[in-house]
Design a protein around this nucleic acid. Structure first.
Lengths: 207, 207
DNA sequence: ACCGCGCTCAACCGATCGGTTGACCCGGCG
DNA sequence: CGCCGGGTCAACCGATCGGTTGAGCGCGGT
């Protein structure tokens, strides 16, 4: 039985590459592609039954981000979500797994590795890149400052210099909620303003 | 006459995607692929005459980076180098152009755009993504991003998350003066708040 | 001597941020 | 089942920040 995939990535080039790689390893067919989280959700709600696994990038230039989309797909009882991205920072990995992703792969993986991972994820088996596993172990060994997935997202926005209003729009929440998150972040990081929070987050390699 | 391309990117997925995209727009053939700068240089020195343009990523996980490779190819009188990457920071763009690249494209460009750019680059015509052009204009408008010594000091303080009052105490000036400096800094960096200023300053290696 | 520029300061105002209280929903856990 | 934590939101207030105008000082160059 062939595995049917929904590709979510804002780069046409990457989508084409993944399509080529996946369909060349056999027993995989890319049934649909989406350039961001919003479109992916629409596609799933319309033809969810025909997708065995979602292969999702985390970084989206615009539109709904990968984390948000993953959360919603999982919440809606959709197909398993396999994160396929470029970065392997602790913050990204933990946030993705907390959001409910079934796996976390790096884009520089070998084609066969990616193919095997897609089959595993579709079957509900968790998959992690070796380097990702390493970072995860590193984390459990040293229980650092624990920010929630949502808080990390907020922090990322902060680092770009976004205002509360811009942050709210970006994450589809109200300014009030952004402020609530900020208070928690300041508390956990031991600071009292956004710039200091960004500074501390960089120091602790949270972003 | 078909344009012959050498692809340099450390991600197999991206190479596959670019190959698919380029060869689908017509009159382009990907003659060779290299996973890093070193391999690319070897290929060129052995079969340089058969490459019309090098399509190069900047970020390479390991091995020789894209900047270094571009410099050497240009120095050796090799084919034009078109940078195709994910980021559009001023630092990256300026560095690439200084290294001698003939163009700078973003990976989220449309396939047809990329195809046209490859043809242009091969013919020796410079090409830039719109957003890249915007950043460059931004840079030329702000003359060399030349901040005064005092402004750099302020910026350093900003980066630590200090308030205007703390900054004033630290530098033995009044809050009013701090605010004046800040306005000038925002102006020169093209931003409108302290966190964004710090972000931009990091990008441009001003701190 | 004059001009330009960087640095300094003041006063003012609207916009944004920081902080608090209180509330609701949901999912996981004992 | 009830509890708790995470996420969401509202309303409110004082503090801080962003932006403007206007002005004085000292230093270096034409």
């Amino acid at each position: 039985m062939t595995t049917r995939v929904l590709l979510v990535d804002d780069h046409p080039v990457v989508r084409a590459g993944l399509r080529a790689v996946l369909e060349s390893v056999g027993d995989i067919v890319v049934g649909a592609e989406a350039p961001d989280g919003r479109v992916a959700l629409e596609m799933l709600s319309r033809a969810g039954g025909s997708v065995d696994v979602v292969v999702m990038d985390l970084q989206m230039g615009s539109g709904m981000g990968g984390l948000d989309a993953t959360r919603r797909i999982v919440a809606a009882g959709g197909p398993p979500v396999l994160i396929l991205t470029t970065y392997d920072t602790q913050a990204d990995i933990v946030a993705a797994l907390e959001a409910g992703a079934i796996g976390y792969l790096l884009k520089d993986s070998q084609p066969e590795t990616i193919g095997a991972a897609v089959h595993d994820a579709a079957a509900g088996r968790p998959v992690l890149s070796p380097s990702v596993t390493a970072r995860l172990m590193q984390r459990v060994r040293s229980p650092g400052t624990s920010l929630s997935a949502r808080e990390i997202e907020i922090l990322r926005g902060l680092a770009t210099g976004a205002s509360n209003r811009a942050l709210a729009k970006e994450l589809f929440i109200s300014e009030a909620t952004v402020k609530t998150h900020l208070v928690h972040i300041y508390d956990k990081l031991g600071v009292d303003n956004r710039t200091a929070a960004v500074n501390r987050a960089r120091e602790e390699h949270l972003i």
